[in-house]
Amino acid sequence: MMLNEPLLEINGLKKYYPKKDGFFQGKKSWIKAVDGMDLTIGKGETLGLVGESGCGKSTTGRMIVGLEDPTEGTVSFQGNNLSQVDKRELGKQMQMIFQDPFSSLNPRMKVSDVIAEPLRLHKVGSRIEQQKRVDELLERVGLRSEHGRRFPAEFSGGQRQRIGIARAIALSPSLIVCDEPVSALDVSIQAQVLNLLKDLQKELGVSYLFIAHGIQAVKYISDRIAVMYLGKIVEVATKEELFSRPQHPYTESLLSAVPRPDPKLRGRDRIILKGDLPSPENPPSGCRFHTRCPKVMDVCKQVEPALQVTREGTYAACHLVSEAEMKQPQEA
């Protein structure tokens, strides 16, 4: 694998939320938002994180930047366990960009103050230097310095996302968690923002965790992609591998379900999954995908498959994959 030196490592990460009226037979019950995750993000790398609504992507992102504490497991950044790192110092190194450009910016703050906030918080430079940096940043994300005097409400969705990006790169962090940064934007504006993120990465060498359910955008921006299903990672691979040879049946059906912008592809063979996404409050036994998997076997209902290496740098959690690996006959 071409993974550079690891910047961030996640081990056995879990986040359980207590269920509201959550007592089941006298025991407290939990929403298992993230239920045992291992991941690595390399220096200067973009790791895409995809999966359906509620599978735990945002929760993962929030634990990585320290906005939430894990129930179990560790996040280590540059070799240091997050729980032992000073949160302020962490804020310099890691930033987050949110999906909703409309609610993630304080409406009562002028744009220049929004962008300068992290600089002030970390006491970087004098007042004048900070202002200069804000102008630079505005320009860098394709806005003008006079835009700094306006309020977020005066900007379009794409422009607000640019403001969010300017704020995120203000301290030159080494990792930015981008949580659905383009999902709320129109296609033509999505393209602008994706190009900007890619250019900034080349320039600054920053790593991204890019969370999205728009698979085209993830493919465009990512080096490697991790696929989640109900709180677990089911597959990790380079994007080339993932798109040309998906290993996990869920990945396969996810890719197959994407509507393709070419009418000549109509009538191609597609995997259309039946049934609804189960709730993370009550995930299926064994392999969590077994209620919808077109390739389900008896063993899948009881035994949970572990995430394991299938090829150099590719991981998948599926009994079929382990079987192929061990070349053993199917166990009934």
Binding site: S188, I189, Q190, A191, Q192, K198, Q216, K219, F243
Partner: peptide
């Protein structure tokens, strides 16, 4: 503006400028 699913995807997407 839509990134392609097939083929290499390292070239820039040609976005529409402005709003």
């Amino acid at each position: 503006s839509v990134p392609k699913l097939e083929g290499a995807s390292d070239e820039r997407i040609s976005a529409i400028r402005g709003t």
